[in-house]
Write a protein that binds this DNA or RNA. Structure first.
Length: 273
DNA sequence: ATGTCCACCTGCTGGC
DNA sequence: TGCCAGCAGGTGGACA
């Protein structure tokens, strides 16, 4: 689930569920996820009021009125859902609020993690040290991307996954963006000219924007979450579409799966050059 | 420095 | 039916 659009969707859901609410208790049902949970988590957030919820890269940031910010990363399989039944095996952290709601941080594979940070020193935190630009902000321009990537010999697919250059992209949206821009995932960054970036940057923005818009329906499911149903169902043009015909007009190619840096890449060899 | 690979986890699917 | 290999939306650290 969690690339930028999914994290953004979760954050928007959390605004409705947590903003201006007082946290009455946090229950940790195990000691660690990817890393140990923050020491004294309950003691540090109990009684605090959530002033806002925001996102940076793939981090969820829950800002509290006690100068602390609760950072959450969903890893590969993390979700946050309203709990109306007893917690399940993978509901690792439970958040109770003063309106008698309970939210569960659920993460099957436990690649997610949490931290508690000083709000005023947030940007100096190690989590933020090596983060690149936000793709949906004006700082991501074709000129910027061209200058940042043009000396690298890495394949463009791998480089786009690198959060120190552009944040928020994951395996799905990288594949979708490269397909949309007609760029072969194995091309070295240093073969991309400014013109390529003038197609790729708007395509990244378009793919992410549309996914967030589609995530709006997830938001409704999320709010009404009773049990586990209502996951984001999205149809992708290439991701997980191996063997299917390419959807580009007039293209007769077939979507193919290859492996780059140990991860699946989906592409159409007819129209991605 | 740069780039690649693996480990960290659990669960599901498909082939034999 | 059972078993096992392979795969899954991320990423930090070990290694060449």
């Amino acid at each position: 689930m969690p690339e930028l659009p999914e994290v953004e969707t979760v954050c928007r859901g959390l605004v409705g569920l947590l903003q201006n609410r007082r946290i009455t208790e946090v229950v940790c049902r195990r000691e660690n996820l990817r890393y140990p949970l923050p020491p004294l988590l309950n003691e540090r957030v109990q009684g605090a009021i959530v002033t806002s919820v925001s996102r940076r890269a793939k981090f969820i940031l829950v800002h509290l009125n006690n100068e602390l910010t609760w950072l959450m990363h969903l890893g590969m399989s993390g979700r946050i859902h309203g709990l109306t039944t007893p917690p399940g095996k993978h509901d690792h952290v439970l958040i109770y609020t003063d309106d008698n709601q309970c939210l569960a941080f659920n993460d099957t594979r436990r690649f997610g993690y949490m931290d508690i940070l000083s709000t005023s020193r947030l940007t100096q935190s190690s989590h933020f040290k090596n983060l690149g630009v936000e793709p949906l902000e004006l700082s991501l321009t074709a000129d910027y991307a061209y200058s940042k990537f043009r000396l690298s010999r890495r394949p463009i697919k791998t480089a786009l996954l690198d959060q120190s250059l552009i944040v928020g992209l994951g395996n799905i949206y990288v594949c979708e963006s490269l397909w949309g821009a007609g760029i072969h995932p194995e091309r070295s960054c240093n073969t991309l000219g400014l013109k390529d970036w003038q197609r790729l940057v708007p395509m990244i923005v378009d793919v992410l924007t549309k996914a967030i818009a589609a995530g709006g329906s997830t938001l409704r499911d999320y709010r009404n979450a009773a049990g586990e149903s209502g996951y984001f169902q999205h149809t992708f043009a290439v991701y997980d579409c191996a063997g299917q015909p390419c959807q580009h007009p007039h293209c007769r190619g077939t979507i193919k799966r290859i492996v780059q840096a140990g991860r699946s890449t989906f592409l159409c060899e007819s129209c991605q050059k």
